[in-house]
Amino acid sequence: MEVHILLIFMIIGAIVALEARDLLSSVIVLGVVSFALCLAFLILKAPDLAITQLVVEILCLIILIRATIKRDLPLAIEGRWIFNTISTVVFICVFLYFVMLALRELPVFGEPIMAVVREYLEKGKTETGAVNLVTAVVLNFRAYDTLGEAAVLFTSIIGIVAVLRSPGKKKD
């Protein structure tokens, strides 16, 4: 029930963030949505995710505010809005069709299947020595995924440095 309230809050916050007039307030409303997501993770018994989401969200807010501060531009609304609206509606309809197909196959909420993870749960303490099973999965059973995640992070840092570095020649 609490998760329902938080999700409705997140939906309202997302609409406000997309429709707000100036960019700084929409960025801050995005932060509100993300902190509601933190609370939802805590209620859903995922404390590691809540901590990580909190840290990542604060970093995201800093980066987004760095991008939008002092660049507050009026939004233009007119122009090609029929084409844009039609394409948006078409994409949302296609997505909802696939959601409708997928929702029939999903397990009932509150009773997960746990076919893969049963072995991890039984062997986790003896094989890895980690009491927290999420840590055991991330750093031991699925360590190659974490290695790939680190590779993706370094690649994105290389991309940021390549995009944002000052150009070699002067314009004067």
Binding site: D48, L49, V56, V134, V138
Partner: peptide, 13 residues
Amino acid sequence: VDPLPQAMALTSI
């Protein structure tokens, strides 16, 4: 609760 989707979501975040 199932820890495997939580671990995958941690990577995704």
